[in-house]
């Protein structure tokens, strides 16, 4: 199983990568904005994506839709600091599988990732 981390902050990308190691992904890649994420996604074809919302060059929600057009069964966890409930609802509406509010901890990230695969 492969994971693509999308976030414009290097710090956050590293944190997610570190925390997600517990999951023993076969491979983890990352992208720093929506446009790069889409490019990366097409060649990498991961099963799981974590997605920031506020990013330069294609925001996260647009990117969620674009990715789902490529591979409808991908699990996308939107991770954002936008505490407004409308954002979370909008993310799910656009097709994200889950929403996690920043700041997150290792525990909340792991739980959210686990929940992506719950039925």
């Amino acid at each position: 199983m492969k994971l693509l981390i999308v976030d414009d902050s290097t710090l956050i990308r590293r944190a997610i990568e570190r925390f997600a190691n517990k999951f023993q992904f076969d491979e983890i890649r990352s992208a720093n904005n929506g446009a790069n994420a889409l490019k990366e996604f097409k060649s990498f074809l991961p099963e799981v994506v974590t997605m920031d919302i506020t990013m330069p060059e294609m925001d996260g929600l647009t990117c969620v839709e674009a990715i789902l057009r490529e591979k409808p069964d991908v699990q996308i966890l939107v991770i954002s600091a936008l505490a407004d409930k409308s954002t979370a609802v909008e993310a799910i509406k656009r097709g994200a599988s889950g929403f996690l509010l920043k700041p997150f901890t290792e525990e909340t990230l792991i739980t959210s990732l686990e929940e992506l695969f719950e039925e």
């Binding site: 409930k85 979370a88 609802v89 993310a91 889950g98 929403f99 929940e115």
Partner: peptide, 13 residues
């Protein structure tokens, strides 16, 4: 098709 648990988590109300 949407997972209930994820939806309940983002309850805006």
């Amino acid at each position: 098709k949407r997972k209930e648990k994820q939806i309940l988590k983002v309850n805006p109300l």
